[in-house]
Simulated scan of single mutants.
Amino acid sequence: MLAAVTAGVLSLTQCTSSSHDDRPRSAADDDGSRTGLEDVVTGYTAGFSEDSGYRRPSRTERHAVAEGVGLLLDRHRARAERRLADVDFQVRTVTDSGTGRRYAEVSDRSEDAAAPRGWGRVYVDLDSPIRWSVQVPHPVADRNTERLGAALLSRSSGGVMVLAGAHRKAGRGDEADVAHHRRSVFHAICDELAKRGVPGIQVHGMADDSAPRHDVVASTVKGREAVREGRDLADALRRRGYDVCRAWARSCPLEGRKNVQGRNAWAQETEFLHVEFSPRIRDHRKHLKAAVAAMTTVTRDWRRM
């Protein structure tokens, strides 16, 4: 599974209940569309631009979405749908017809409106206990990080993907830069995960001249809970021929010290990795594949926790 997860075909279906759902099981109705998970994600982000718009959510709206995602994590599908509907969000099931793996897709109904709110999406593995998350705060702006996130979710079971819903420069000022603002739906969801002790790996893209001697910068931000996982990731990348700056061991550029999800994870004593990938890795299929394979060494360990 790589930058183009087109070999595995997904059928998008309407709400198949999990075994722990609080409503009767029912047959899934195929809506007729068939596509890859990565295509679903990149189709969604294709319209993102600096002018695509963003509205800062209220405290009530942020908490409603986070609570709804929490109910999904607890396998209370019907209750989650009702809570999310309070803020005009919806849930559908994405089923991988190649592997049979199913994901709950949480999306904003305003995505197709003239003025979308830009609050993002979440994908939750329905067939495995949730053990880790991948966070994509700057899709499109950090080119192809949305592909990294989708490929990792497809490659490794037990995951949640939290995907920002707007270009980081959309909206007023820098309020859509969710990696540096707590008053976002993105942060509220990541906070819900951190409170539950769900480790996270947040993927970013850096420019060639940001760290010219390195292909990757890996950091635990403020905490040290994920140093072992960071070493495992750096070692896996090094074995594949990439130079990694290890921010827990030396001074590196782009360490993400002000990243609010990382600082929040530290406060919750939850493992968190902030990883910057160079254009070389993000823009070439074989390198993207290698980076995803390296990240699975971390998610594999988290699945054993």
Rank of each mutant, 00 (worst) to 15 (best):
M1P: 08
L10G: 15
L12T: 13
T13E: 10
T13Q: 12
R23P: 06
R23Q: 13
A27D: 12
A28R: 12
D31Y: 03
T35W: 04
E38C: 14
Y44W: 12
T45R: 02
E50N: 07
E50R: 13
G53A: 06
Y54C: 08
R55K: 11
P57H: 03
S58G: 14
E67W: 00
V69G: 01
L72I: 03
R75E: 01
R77V: 09
A78D: 12
R82M: 01
R83G: 05
D86F: 00
D86I: 08
D86C: 00
D88T: 10
F89P: 02
V91K: 02
R92W: 01
R92E: 05
D96C: 10
S97R: 13
G100P: 06
R102W: 00
A104K: 01
D108R: 04
R109I: 09
S110F: 11
A114R: 15
P116W: 06
G120M: 06
R121T: 02
D127H: 07
P129T: 09
R131A: 13
W132F: 06
V134D: 12
Q135D: 15
P139C: 12
D142V: 12
T145L: 07
R147M: 11
A150N: 13
A150G: 15
S154F: 07
R155P: 02
S156T: 14
S156C: 14
V160M: 07
M161L: 10
L163S: 05
K169S: 15
A170R: 09
A170M: 05
G173F: 15
D177C: 05
R182M: 11
V185K: 03
F186N: 07
H187M: 14
A188E: 05
D191G: 10
E192T: 10
E192L: 03
L193T: 07
L193M: 05
K195M: 10
R196P: 05
V198G: 06
I201E: 12
Q202I: 01
V203E: 02
G205F: 07
M206T: 13
M206G: 10
D209H: 12
S219D: 08
T220Y: 02
K222R: 15
R224K: 13
E225N: 10
V227S: 10
R228F: 06
R231F: 03
D232K: 10
R238C: 01
R238W: 03
C245V: 05
S251A: 14
N259P: 07
Q261L: 08
R263Y: 00
N264L: 06
A265G: 09
A267L: 11
Q268K: 11
T270H: 00
T270V: 04
T270A: 04
E271P: 05
F272E: 00
F272G: 00
L273V: 03
V275I: 05
F277I: 03
F277P: 00
S278M: 11
P279M: 01
H287E: 15
L288C: 04
K289C: 10
A293T: 14
A294G: 01
M295Q: 10
T299K: 03
D301M: 06
W302K: 12
R304M: 02
